[in-house]
Design a protein around this nucleic acid. Sequence first.
DNA 1: TACTGATGTTAGGTTTTCTAACATGACATT
DNA 2: AATGTCATGTTAGAAAACCTAACATCAGTA
Lengths: 134, 134
Amino acid sequence: MSNQKKRTSEIRKSMPLLPIGTVIQLTDLTARQIRYYEEHDLIRPHRTEGNQRMFSLNDVDQLLEIKDLLEQGLNIAGIKKVFEMKKEENEHNKIGKELSEDKIRSILREEMKIAQSRLQKPSLRYGDVNRLYQ
Amino acid sequence: MSNQKKRTSEIRKSMPLLPIGTVIQLTDLTARQIRYYEEHDLIRPHRTEGNQRMFSLNDVDQLLEIKDLLEQGLNIAGIKKVFEMKKEENEHNKIGKELSEDKIRSILREEMKIAQSRLQKPSLRYGDVNRLYQ
DNA sequence: TACTGATGTTAGGTTTTCTAACATGACATT
DNA sequence: AATGTCATGTTAGAAAACCTAACATCAGTA
């Protein structure tokens, strides 16, 4: 890999570089949805001086995860809980391991009553980022 | 590294994700400069439907290289030649090696007459991307 | 039936970006 | 010294993108 390529590939994934329009394309969410999730503290995009939202790649990841969990039937509260637990995990486990599948399943069980009746919409899954590749 | 992080880290560096405002911050170039370089075919950013420029990380790299070469005294024509030669190199050498230091020096010699009198402005160098890290 | 949660839609205002034109300042040429 | 060129600054007016706030919708729940 060339030197200059190596350099920008190291850009921190937490840098707020992307306007909402780009994020809409990357996630297939609507502006309304993205703003709604922010309103409920599921994401916290930066703001420019002019108050425009600016998202990092980590924010995009987070949004894709929100989308995925919603499609699995969780509601906002459930997703918030999942993120809280993930954060705790990251704080306690210096290893930086992911929220275990077991815990995810436990959350899912809690949410089952709510989720039971929801339709499983056929759409892009969390992790299906082929869209990101030209 | 988590799965979702791995996913977006694979986003192609050629994807046009960044508006010019972000690029201005990343490169410390002015909008005028960036547009001028485009006018002279040193970069070719994508356009949205609404005709707004959208830049990839590779474009940012290219702009940083332009900036660096300008500071070394090259003019637009010289930079264009450097890029042409780089492209040839990449086409002929499947190994994908960089333009050799020898060839760069040869270009620099050609440009010396022009460059001789220019001031070496003290400023950020090509490769100094600490600015990119929060 | 009435309520809630997630999202759609619209309106009006602000920020960002666009092109095009003219200005400037350093350097080169005559 | 006068003129030309190159890279960049500056400005104006228009268009695109984004903002908040409010009201609408619609499925699922009580």
